[in-house]
Design a protein around this nucleic acid. Structure first.
Lengths: 188, 188
DNA sequence: AGTCGGCGAGAACGAGCGTTCTCAGCGTCT
DNA sequence: AGACGCTGAGAACGCTCGTTCTCGCCGACT
């Protein structure tokens, strides 16, 4: 039996620790201690630490994207297309205010390991591409030019990085205001 | 004698290696090997690795900011205030295209060590605050609302993070286009 | 000329890393 | 009942880390 519960606990612990101390600052022992999953099983499920990191990032990709789409659907389902775009930045504001928010894991791991691990870059790019595709959908629904999606992604990435550095969520509001201006300027 | 040349070589080597492998992925031995500065002198000048990192970041703060202001003065000294703001993003485009560009060192180190080192966060925040003050000057000169400076900083940070992840400089152009729209929308 | 203080090269240290191995125990099949 | 195979706990391995120590050497002062 693969014992999915143990695997999930390991992934959760690894995600938490990687975020808190940086990937290179976390040993497999620490992940075992935090998750209760023995080293032997960790290495059976994830042949190496790099594989574990990969799995954490893949899971995070799904989690982040479904959290965003879920928030937009829940809070702006009946709103205008413009409202739905801006709701993405409202989601960011809530996320940034979480007490242990440490920034976007894909940007952080790319910053730490991008020079030595091609895989970290690849997974990060896929994640941001998927995010851009989602923004593109929203932008299309508002009948706005496609190029806006790239600009909104830069804004969102900037908000994540800025909020993580500052330890405060205000960058989300600044990005939201900028996004509103970009949308309104594109409509005419 | 403090032998400033050795200290500078050590700082340069440390900056290069930290960027390439992440701070936690670089040993003091590697910095000694790359700089030719013996361990004994490294520890005389920088009592600990954290102190060395601090010194690297302080130097980088000055370097980055003077590169930006230098570029703006050289390329848009006689331009309109609007041109001078946009020149900042032109500088980013050139920077991102450098072959070993690995993103903003302050965002990267904050991502890696922000959870364990208050000092890394403090230095990073000071750097971004100084950048915001500079943008604020440019925005003031263009007689634009103060709040624009924060939005431009989010755009710049987003461009740095996005370009570093993608390995391509196109995010600079996207941020520049967005900045132009924000400026033009604010003027009316 | 002889002593001495600071130097560089590199060994050494204790700790922690990623990964593998040992081994006693336990459930499962015959 | 008894043999087997997989398990978890943890020791062990070889390496690297940040930091300190040893020691032979050289230049400066008396």
């Amino acid at each position: 039996m693969t014992d999915q519960a143990d695997v999930d606990r390991a992934l959760d612990a690894a995600e938490r620790l990687f975020n808190a101390r940086g990937v290179q600052g976390v040993g497999m022992d620490a992940i075992r201690d935090a998750s209760g999953v023995p080293l032997k099983r960790l290495y059976r499920e994830f042949p190496s630490k790099a594989d574990l990191l990969h799995a954490v990032l893949e899971k995070r990709d799904l989690d982040v994207r479904s959290a965003i789409t879920g928030f937009v659907d829940a809070n702006a389902a009946s709103g205008s297309p413009r409202d739905r775009v801006l709701a993405v930045f409202d989601y960011l504001a809530g996320w940034f205010a979480e007490p242990d928010f440490r920034g976007c894991m894909f940007l952080n791991t790319a910053g730490e390991l991008g020079g030595t691990s091609q895989d970290v870059l690849t997974v990060g790019r896929r994640h941001k591409l998927a995010l851009r595709d989602y923004l593109s959908e929203l932008v299309d629904a508002a009948e706005l030019p496609e190029a806006l999606a790239d600009q909104l992604l830069v804004l969102a990435n900037g908000a994540m990085a800025t909020a993580a550095l500052n330890g405060t969520p205000e960058a989300a509001g600044q990005a939201r205001a900028a996004a509103a201006v970009l949308i309104d300027a594109a409509v005419r």
